[in-house]
């Protein structure tokens, strides 16, 4: 049976790369006030990187588990 972590990993890597790339080329800042100070984030780039990391993490789990999954 297909290991569900493979499509999850692939989807999140693709979406993460799209977001990071778009965030770098077309920066859109989001202002977040914390305790009176305004922090500015490039949300697409930063959250896109989180999504990308999650995709890589899922892919790494599949690779580490490969002998077991291929049974």
């Amino acid at each position: 049976m297909l290991d569900i972590r493979i499509p999850i990993s692939a989807l999140f890597i693709v979406v993460g790369l799209l977001l990071v790339g778009y965030g770098v080329v077309v920066p859109a800042s989001v202002d977040v006030p914390v305790n009176g100070t305004i922090y500015t984030f490039n949300l697409n780039r930063d959250w896109g990187a989180m999504i990308l990391l999650f995709g890589i993490f899922m892919g790494a789990l599949v690779r580490m588990d490969k002998p077991k999954s291929s049974e």
């Binding site: 979406v15 799209l18 977001l19 859109a28 989001v30 949300l43 959250w47």
Partner: peptide, 10 residues
Amino acid sequence: MMYPSGMLGV
């Protein structure tokens, strides 16, 4: 309201 284009798609 919170998301720019890109995250809006997500």
